[in-house]
Amino acid sequence: MGYSVTPDDLQRSSKALRRSATRVVSTPGQARWAFGKIEVACGDPACAGVAAALAGSWADALAALSDTALGLGGATFAAGTAYAGADGVVATAVGTAS
C-alpha cells in the first residue's frame, strides 16, 4: 500500500485535533474571567463598563469558535475511522492483513 498518510497518522491527527478543540472549549470561561478581572481592577467606571460588555461578547464569540473546533475534530475523527476501515478492507483483500 503506497499511502503517504497512514490510517494511524490520520487517527493520531484527529485525536490531537479533538484534544485541541477540547482545550478551546475552556477559552470562553478564560475570556470571561480575564475581562471580569479587568472590570474590577481598572478603577474607572467607563473602562469597567466596556470590560463587562466585552466579557459577555468574547465568551459568546469563543463559544461559537469552540463549537466549530469540536465539529472539525469530530469530522476528522469520522474521516480517520472510515479511512482506517477502508484501508483494513483493502489490506485484507490483498492478503497483507496480519
Partner: peptide, 25 residues
C-alpha cells in the same frame, strides 16, 4: 490569562492546520 488564551488559540490553529493537511492528503 489573556496571554494563555491567545497561546491556546495559536496552538489550536497549528493543530487544525496539521490535522486538516493530514485529512486532506
Amino acid at each position: 490569562r489573556l496571554d494563555d488564551l491567545i497561546e491556546d488559540l495559536r496552538r489550536h490553529q497549528r493543530c487544525v492546520l496539521s490535522g486538516v493537511s493530514t485529512a486532506l492528503a
